[in-house]
Structure formats: C-alpha cells, structure tokens
Write a protein that binds this DNA or RNA. Sequence first.
DNA 1: TTATTTCTGTATCACTCACTACAAAATCCT
DNA 2: AGGATTTTGTAGTGAGTGATACAGAAATAA
Lengths: 203, 203
Amino acid sequence: MSDTEINTQTTARRGRPRAFDREVALAKAQALFHARGYDALSVADLTHALGINPPSFYAAFGSKLELYDEALRRYEKTEGLDVDTALAPGTPLSEGVARLLRYAADAYASGEACGCMVIEAARGTADAAAGEKARERMEASRSYIHQRISSLDAGHADLASDYVMMSLAGLSASARNGMPTARLRIMAAIAADGLKSQLEHAA
Amino acid sequence: MSDTEINTQTTARRGRPRAFDREVALAKAQALFHARGYDALSVADLTHALGINPPSFYAAFGSKLELYDEALRRYEKTEGLDVDTALAPGTPLSEGVARLLRYAADAYASGEACGCMVIEAARGTADAAAGEKARERMEASRSYIHQRISSLDAGHADLASDYVMMSLAGLSASARNGMPTARLRIMAAIAADGLKSQLEHAA
DNA sequence: TTATTTCTGTATCACTCACTACAAAATCCT
DNA sequence: AGGATTTTGTAGTGAGTGATACAGAAATAA
C-alpha cells in the first residue's frame, strides 16, 4: 500500500544527517578542479567554497585524490564529447572526425573553465597520483574513440585515433589560451581537412 | 705583454670564489624544469641535484622563479625551433608550416624531457607567477612566428599562426604522452596538409 | 528515555614548501 | 700581514599542505 521502499537513494540512515548536498558539492568541486587544476586547488579552498569543514569533507569524499577521481568521471558523463553521435555507424571516417573535432571546439571554449579537464590534467601535475588518474581517464577515452573509429574504417584506426587525440589536445590548449569558439571551430575544420586529405591521397 | 685584460667574463672578483659552474648548474636546472615542471621540482630537489646548499642557490639565482625565467630563455636559445630556416623568405606558406611542424616533431620527442618546455608550462602550473612567465615566452614565440608568416603571406598570417600554435601544442602533448618521433612526424605532416588544403581551396 | 550512530566544529597534527640568519672559510686589495 | 668582500655549510624561519583527534550535536532505534 505505502511507497516506503521506493526511495532507495536516501534510505533514512541513522545518525546525524549530512548538512550539505553531496551531489551539489561534487559538481562544484568538479568545476573548481577543471578551472584551476588539481595542484592549485587546495583542500582549504575546497572546504571554503563548499561551506564545510575538513572533517565533513573527508567523511564525504575520503581524500582530495578520491574526490578528484570522482570529479573526473563526473566530467566525462556530464561534459564529455558525444563520440557515439559524431562517429555514428555508416559515417565516412573523415566526416566523423570533422564532427568530433567540431564538438570539441564548441565544448572546450564554453564557460570559464575552458579546455578539456582530462587532457589538461593528464600532464603537468605536481601530484603524481593525480596525474595518473587523469591519464587513466584519457587512455579510456582514447581507447573508446579508437574502437569507434575502428568500426568505421579499421585500416586507418590507429592513425586516425592518434590524430584525433593530438587535435583534441591542440584544441584544448588553444581554448585554454583564450581562443574564442568561432576561431576554434575554424581550427577544428582545418585539422579535420588534414586527415581527409591524407585519407584521400592514401586511397 | 700579458693578456690579463682579455678575459672579461671571469674578471677575478674579490671574495671567496664560487665552488660550482653557474652555467652548468643552469643547464641542469633547465633540463629538470623541462622534465618535471615548475611545481613538481622543489628547491630542495634542485639544490640536491646541483650539489649545492640553499644559500649558494639563492646567491647565484635569486629565487626559484628567477631561475625558472632564466631556464625558459635558455631553452629558447638552445632548443628552440629554427623558425627562420623553416619560414625563410620566398618559401610558400604551406611548405614553411610543414617544415616548422616537422622540426617540432623531431625536437619534441627527443630526450627524456619531451614536449615543448614553454607550451607545456604555459598552462596548468599551481604557481601563478611561473605560469605567467611561461605564457610571456609563448606569446613572444607566437608573435615572432606571426611576424615571419606575415612576411610570406600577410593575408593568412592570423589564421596560419593560430593554426601553427595549435598544432605545436598538439604535437607537444602527443610527445609528452609517449608518441615516438616517426609517428609524430606523420602527425605533423597530416596537420600541415590541413592548412595546405585550406589555403588552396580558399584561393 | 536511553543507547547507538553519524555528522559537525574547533583545534590541531606532522610534513613540505620557498627562503634566510649567522658565522666560518676563502679569495682579492693595500 | 691585515682589512674587505663574497661564498659556504649549518640550522632554522614562517607559511601552507593534506589529513585527524576529540567532544558535542542531531538524528534513528530500542
């Protein structure tokens, strides 16, 4: 009769309830990590921005590194490129790559935290463990892109996925350096033309 | 009779002489900054690697930041790309860019400190002042490349220099991710083809 | 109510960071 | 030789780092 067992996410645990929304805090932390990077963002910065104290922070997220890992995965889910649409079955490879790079141009320039959170974090972090986390996520993305490209044109999968990853890194860097969306789109189109030209001449 | 006044670099200053070679130390510091980045390389790491104590370090270099600035400039002089040769007067723009990117492919993959020291440092540093120094050097390089491209093809200088900077960032990132020289050269060629194709179709 | 559990705030912890005070040592100038 | 000057090694500075001990507060369970 009653619907008491439907709500499984907040199962009315015992003890004093948490005074903040963990999901909201994670979203805010992810944005901060994206904008300022792992090293430049201290736990003190985070607790201050979230309006909580260190013990609450560590009880909810474990450690700075664990929160960072969660933030990276959240970024992929909420702001990651739509690889499936860009490289949909039946799409010519050069066209799919052009679409994916255009998605990146649009995504990387928007907001104050520009560039790709994963690509920018994959190198240059003082904390070795944090860099490793980012590199893991980037490798996962690379692998997935390679797989999707492989289903379109298996013969050029290695070459094309390497080129895509390089182009994404270039676009991300340019976005980070302040390049506006419109110009970024042009850059993406030129880069895509390079692969197209290569595939045509090699055919 | 004697040649005492010829040697002007070591003018026999008063006081206790320095026990280490400043140039050698600078070279070693530059390599370390390149390989590990500003944040990850502590002054303690530096003094240990150079075999000196902190007071000698600060007497010789002023501060970690000043040494970093010197290291960046040394990198440009000793390992910077030969822009003048790549974009020599009379060179077709697309060919010059292809040459410059190939130089980068060769330079970025060599050694254990891979990627461009300036590009990699221009973003992602926890220390804001160090990032600013790197960004200054990158802007200087961008400006010089823009000027040289402008003398080859003034109409496409903005577009081409933006594209070159983006491609260099992509090549640097790929090198940092372990891409070998041969593959990096192919990437450079494909990227250069993009601009060539763009310039031809726009003409 | 009473016990149990969980979270919250205060006040730290040990550690690393870039950097320096101080006096002894080593050179040049007179 | 003796004074002036600069570097050297020892030892430590204050500030900031990520992470915690502890006790009180706020909820559920009995």
